[in-house]
């Protein structure tokens, strides 16, 4: 296990998440893609912390990323609920209220 291999796995996770976030139509599936991208970021930060500078600052940064993920999840669920209540669907392609 070296830094490069950890970053390669993190890059693969990020790439899979990017594919999902761009290709999925259901809001919850888009959120899953975003979660996978953040999963890759968490892994990359963990690897950089351990192999480059294992001091508490890196851990605090990692804690902030984990907190950001919870915020993304909570707001994503809230927006999906609102979409479902207002329009009766949960697809990104059908959420076109702002299109003229």
């Amino acid at each position: 296990m070296i830094l490069e291999t950890v970053l390669l796995v993190a890059a693969a996770l990020f790439a899979v998440g990017l594919y999902g976030a761009l290709s999925q139509q259901v809001v919850v599936m888009v959120m899953m893609g975003l979660e996978l991208m953040i999963n890759g970021v968490i892994l990359a930060l963990g690897g950089l912390w351990w192999f480059l500078a294992p001091d508490p600052s890196g851990q605090v940064l990692l804690l902030v990323v984990v907190a950001a993920m919870t915020v993304e999840m909570a707001m994503g669920f809230a927006v999906a609920t609102l979409l479902h209540r207002q329009a009766g669907h949960d697809m990104t392609d059908m959420a076109t209220e702002l299109r003229r």
């Binding site: 830094l3 790439a15 990017l18 761009l22 290709s23 192999f51 500078a53 001091d55």
Partner: peptide, 30 residues
Amino acid sequence: AAIGAGVGAFLLLGAGALLVPWPERRGAPD
């Protein structure tokens, strides 16, 4: 397009991971 973006992101990030001259570890964990 999504597959292309995913593959492109992996190639870019993977190349960065392998080609960047990472510095030596600074300090030791607590």
